[in-house]
Every structure is written in C-alpha cells, then in structure tokens.
Design a protein around this nucleic acid. Structure first.
Lengths: 182, 182
DNA sequence: CTAACAAATGATAGTTTCTAACATGTGATT
DNA sequence: AATCACATGTTAGAAACTATCATTTGTTAG
C-alpha cells in the first residue's frame, strides 16, 4: 500500500513490492494470486451474507438487505475505515482495480441471493432477490464512493442510510449537509 | 467472436485472432486497445445519456431513467440481440470480461449523472442521481443477465420492465412466467 | 502516369504479469 | 538425529501489451 500510494498502482511493479518486502516475486504471487489482490482482499462478503439471514423475516426484502449493509459499516473500527479509505482512493483512480472491485461487488450480490433464496428454487423469487440486492449494493457503493471522494469527512453510516432510503423509497433527508465531523 | 466461442476467451490468444484475421498481432492491438475490447465494444452509453435528456422532466427521476433504458432495448434489432447474446455468454463465463463489463456499466452510470446534473452543481442532487442511476442500471443488468441465462427465450423488454418496476416500487407482475418466445 | 504524401501495417525488441517445474532451506515431530 | 511438511528461491516460459522504426498501400496533385 505504501508503494502504491507513493508511486501509483500501475507504476509499481510486483518486483518492487517483492523487493520492499525482501522476498522474491514468486513469493508475492504465492500469497496474492494477482497483483490486484495486494490491494483488494475482500472478506466482507461472507459477513454480509451471514448477517442477512439473521434479519427479521417479516420485514420487506430491501429493508432487510439495507439493515444488513448498515450493520456492516456500523461494525467498522476507526482503523478499518482508515484502511478502507486508502484502498478506495487507489481503487477509484485505477481502472484495473475499479473493475476488479466491481466484480467483487458482483460476487457479494451472488452471495446475498444465495443466502436468501428458497430451497426448492423459485426463478421469479430469485430474480426479485437479484434485482433488489443489485439495487441495494449500488446504493451502498454510491455512499462509499461519495464518502471517499469527501476524504471520509462525512459519516459513512448516515450517508449509506440516506442512499439506501432513496432506493427503498422511504426517502429521508440528506445527512447534515455541511457540518462534517472528524 | 468465433474463436472465443469455440475455444474459450482465455484459451484464445491475440495471436490466434490476428492469424485468423490474416494480420499481425500489432494490427489487432492498434484497432483494439486491449484483448477485452475485441468482445466489449460498448457504444450504447452515449445513446442512453442522450435519450435521458429527452424524457419529460415532470416525471419522477427513476421513471425517466427506466424509460430511457427500456427505449434502449426496444431499439435493438434481432441481429443486435443475437450478437448481444453471444457476447453475454462469453462475458458471464469469463472473469476478466465480466469485470470489464461492470466497469463499462460504471461508465454508463457516470454518463447518466453527467447528463442530468444541474449546471451549478448541487452535491446532494448529484448524489441522488448517482444512487438512482446505480439502482436502475443494476436492475437493467439483472434483466439482461437473466435473459442471457435463459438463452434469450424470454422477452428482454418485458423482463427489464419488470426489473425496473421492482426498483421503482411500482411492483408489477412477472412477465409471462413460462410461455416464452424466440 | 507518376511523384508525393498520409495512413495503415509489419517487424523487432522489450517490459510486466503470471504459471510451471524443480531445487533448497527451515522448523517441528518422532 | 532423521524425517517430513512447508515456505521460499531459481529458472524458464507464455501471453498481453508498448515503443520504435521500416514498409507497404492508397490517394491525391501535378
């Protein structure tokens, strides 16, 4: 991360990273399947999929998804958020990383649908799950991106709640437009 | 496309494509900046962005976006749909293409926001645009993916209308669950 | 018809990511 | 102290690009 932030992702070769870590390039590739994985080691997906099954099943679908995502960001420590911010800066600025991150989001979408679909599969239900999950994740991503663009000055939880409210229709008020915090 | 469908995307080198086209590899790279561009030559984005500005401005935001997307697929010829189907099969099966396609979708999202945002930029409005566009594109993508998974047997327009209705809240009925057409 | 000019193509060499095969060292268990 | 699993290193190589320069092709002007 230090090298990538200093010299840029594309301008930093895996050999550079290996040298800085005082190992051979091969060792890097053994621990990180691709160069992208040096930045994007996404292990949030299973957590979200787990959390969504513990939501009250009488709530509407999208609200359950929204609640899971909000609980996810609520559980982030200050350190988590700092690291997330650094990764986001790099990711948004680097096409290769951006594409890969979006594919991770797609995997999360699949995990959510997988977690919620009924056992004898119902194609129509699964489609509705897929659409709803896609919309919620798009809202969450929008919040995270805006949060990163503002250098983390806004509150991520409030921002995401606002974004999700837009999508679920229960259109609330924007979170403290200017006050900021931190 | 023929080679990619026959032998798979990863198993086909750019040299193979160049040989089949009876040109040198260099010539391929001059016409297609990356190997992915051989499959994903997305020129739909500007069309959608244009169309969205010609929607009745008194309609709710998401309905305008939905209408633009639906008009987009309505304008596809049978040949267009056939090519789209072949590309989708390949794209869904190939991680590299999938990631790139998602990045294209991200670019479309930006184009839509760009087309709709007010001239003195309003951060809150822009955020709402971003969230809404993301949700609509997620719904459209869900419809396209399902359409491809069903080998184009369902009607793409109806499927997308259904998906968009789920997201805009005006939850309709699923399109002819089984009849199919093709 | 030819000369001249612009554009497309080709050839070559190089960098970078990533894979495969095999060799080496190191630490824990028996 | 011998052995075995495992992390690491070395080397060779494929494949996607990039840069540079030569060559061809097509088009237009004289």
């Amino acid at each position: 991360m230090r090298l990538f932030l200093e010299r840029g992702y594309d301008a930093t070769t895996v050999s550079d990273v290996a040298a800085a870590a005082e190992v051979s390039s091969m060792t890097v590739f053994r621990h990180f399947p691709t160069k992208e994985d040096l930045v994007l080691s996404d292990d949030y997906d299973p957590l979200i999929a787990d959390r969504i099954k513990s939501q009250p099943p009488d709530e509407p679908l999208m609200r359950r998804m929204a609640a899971s995502l909000l609980q996810g960001v609520a559980g982030l420590s200050a350190d988590d958020r700092e690291l997330l911010l650094a990764r986001l800066r790099l990711t948004l600025a680097t096409p290769a990383l951006r594409a890969r991150q979006l594919d991770n989001q797609y995997a999360t979408q699949r995990a959510i649908v997988e977690a919620l679909r009924s056992d004898p599969p119902d194609p129509d239900q699964e489609f509705r799950l897929w659409v709803s999950a896609g919309a919620c994740l798009a809202a969450a991503a929008a919040a995270i991106i805006r949060w990163a663009e503002q250098d983390g000055r806004l509150d991520l939880g409030e921002l995401m709640a606002y974004a999700l409210a837009i999508v679920t229709g229960e259109d609330g008020n924007p979170p403290h437009p200017s006050p900021g915090r931190h």
